[in-house]
Design a protein around this nucleic acid. Structure first.
Lengths: 204, 204
DNA sequence: ATAGTATATTGTCAATTGACCATACAGCAC
DNA sequence: GTGCTGTATGGTCAATTGACAATATACTAT
């Protein structure tokens, strides 16, 4: 599946969000939403169809996500819960999966997300407590200062992440706890940026 | 909600099944499917709108299930999100429902649960922050000291709840914030125990 | 330089579509 | 009987809509 440009992604996401509410937008509505001419949308939609993200329905007000795309982004809602990360294995390896939790559509796309059980209280000021579950979107970019998961020596760490060139700062969120920011000079084999935390939940 | 005739039900179910696949049918398509004239469908759809099962969107190819109906059929993990609680209305009244969120099976049984958006930081020590969503199980007993929702003068309050006979204590969880425990002597019309908080989540 | 891709505009058009009218008939309540 | 509801048909129409042409600009790759 060919990659999309920023604009195309923007349009696709908007369409997706509208469709989630069973509300198929017309090209003119999309155009109005982005401040574009209808035919710019027509063009962009054409690209999305050509690249296989939308099905060619040619029905009025009949935009549909393509099977291929739906398949890829699979919306089951069942996410694997990762326990201890076994040395040397990819994080989503069967061996690491403890159970599955059905989170529905609460946290958006689920195809590349998984759940991590939080240990420790280093992020308590962000409302992430010991025993909470965080939803992680794999390989998602982490905007500076947002919460992400980084794998250091097969240990998964949830922290506020700041990336500058090849350096990483992992900042805890617990003023009272005396935790210190971790600085990493080089991203190497032992340090892996896993993804962005897209949600947090706990059962009571 | 007025009852439907057989034919009307048939049409509604067909529309529902099509919408589930993000494929809004036109009246002509429905007509073709049932071997009817377009205007028979127009009539039937009019009835469905009049009886409150469909929303009156008047957009081309814009059939939508009504909020009311979605509420009644309570699908799987779709929970209503309660906004401001309108005075005098039951908490789950249509007027209070802002949207629906699909939480899957994360927080257990869903038939009698709903979601409340938290305002304020009075429960921050329990990891419930301003803007978080809490899942509330209606009419569920609240074991002493557990987090529950109490309605006081049409204001929903999330607090640790202690009940002793006819007295209630609502204890905040924010040492720093200077919140005080609320004591209520009598459970009366203005004070309603809504239910237990069975979960908390936030989108990041 | 040249070609291709991506984005954007204005204008036009035919197909799709919901709405509405007139009409008809069957069942039911009063 | 009379009126109401529900179902059904055919015909018509204006609004909505996707498609497409002609054109322009910016960027990238060759």
């Amino acid at each position: 599946m060919k990659p999309l440009t920023e604009k195309q992604q923007e349009i696709l996401k908007y369409i997706e969000s509208r469709l989630e509410e069973n509300d198929s937008p017309s090209q003119r509505e999309i155009a109005a939403h982005f401040g574009l001419a209808q035919n710019s949308v027509y063009q962009l939609v054409s690209y999305l169809k050509k690249k296989g993200y939308l099905d060619d329905s040619s029905i009025h007000r009949g935009l549909k996500l393509s099977k291929e795309y739906l398949d890829q982004t699979k919306k089951s809602g069942y996410l694997p819960v990762i326990g201890r990360v076994a040395a040397g294995l990819p994080i989503l390896a069967q061996e690491n999966i403890q159970e599955y939790i059905d989170v529905g559509q609460t946290f958006g796309r689920t195809s590349d997300s998984f759940i991590l059980k939080v240990a420790g209280d280093s992020m308590i000021d962000e409302g992430i407590m010991d025993g909470d579950f965080v939803v992680v979107r794999k390989d998602s970019e982490i905007p500076n200062g947002q919460i992400g998961v980084v794998l250091i020596n097969d240990e998964a760490t949830v922290k506020k992440v700041y990336i500058h060139k090849n350096r990483i700062a992992l900042e805890p969120a617990n003023k009272a706890g005396g935790y210190k920011t971790i600085y990493i000079k080089n991203i190497n084999e032992d340090v892996q940026i896993v993804g962005r935390v897209t949600g947090c939940f706990r059962k009571l």
